[in-house]
Nucleic acid binder design. Structure first.
Length: 222
DNA sequence: AAATCTACCAACCGCCTGAGA
DNA sequence: ATCTCAGGCGGTTGGTAGATT
């Protein structure tokens, strides 16, 4: 189901993400945000490309991401939006809370495309409570239910921002007890790191970063 | 029980776009 | 006006689990 880990020519890891990598990336972004995807992996302590980190965050680690089966309402909304927008997965994803463009694309290619093709030669069988006139309403109903949360207006072009704006941590979010994660604003450590890494043309492993952190802590903390 | 096939989906790759120099 | 680069997007790949032979 997942790609086996391997390494590219720069020593950056590829393939499936480990739980440890997920935790490092999640923890870093929750604390400092994704201020620069290109540099973020180094500061977060993961041996991945910035692109890989961005993808992992956007598709899997972001808060409130749903995983698993799509509801009928979600399927209907994807079909409706695909009918209107075509393969604009990011725009479709902006209308589906908790679903990434990648997930929707996969859903379309593996299930919905066949269903739509089949429907063109027959009729659809939607649930009794399905709002045929407005599938968006179905999704909002299901997603928000009777909660007090106010959903964005799905017709609002800015609604996508509601789901993709920078994440602000709250008390419920898991944060490991590492007290010296790299901050882009921690210039003292940055200088220290650059000094320590000067003999390394390329940072080849996160072990190096963490060992440097350990050394830094030993040298600078009581 | 073993081999093969199929469906699924996480992740990668390459291209495009927009911002800044 | 042109170039560079980071971020984003959409198409594709490939590993795995489950189904089938």
């Amino acid at each position: 189901m997942v790609k086996a880990p391997c390494y590219d020519k720069n020593g950056l890891k590829k393939g499936a993400w480990s739980e440890d990598e997920d935790n490092k990336l999640r923890t870093y972004i929750q604390r400092y945000g994704h201020w620069n995807w290109g540099l973020l992996p180094k500061f977060a302590g993961v041996s991945r490309s910035g692109k890989s980190c961005r993808l992992r965050w956007m598709n899997y680690l972001r808060p409130n991401m749903k995983h698993g089966n799509f509801s009928k309402q979600e399927d209907d909304l994807v079909i409706d939006l695909h009918n209107k927008l075509g393969n604009k997965w990011s725009r479709i994803a902006a209308k589906l809370p908790g679903r990434s463009d990648n997930e929707i694309k996969n859903r379309w290619n593996t299930h919905l495309k066949k269903r739509v093709q089949g429907d063109q030669s027959g009729s659809t069988s939607l649930g009794p409570d399905h709002d045929h006139a407005n599938p968006k309403v179905n999704l909002v109903k299901e997603t928000y239910g009777s909660s007090n949360i106010t959903a964005p207006t799905l017709d609002d072009e800015t609604a996508g921002d509601f789901w993709t704006e920078p994440f602000l941590p709250d008390d419920d979010i898991f944060v490991p007890s590492c007290n010296y994660l790299l901050s882009p604003f921690n210039f003292e450590f940055n200088d220290y790191f650059n000094c320590q890494s000067s003999c390394h043309d390329v940072m080849t492993s996160d072990e190096f970063l963490w060992s440097t952190l350990d050394t830094y802590v030993e040298d600078n903390m009581e």
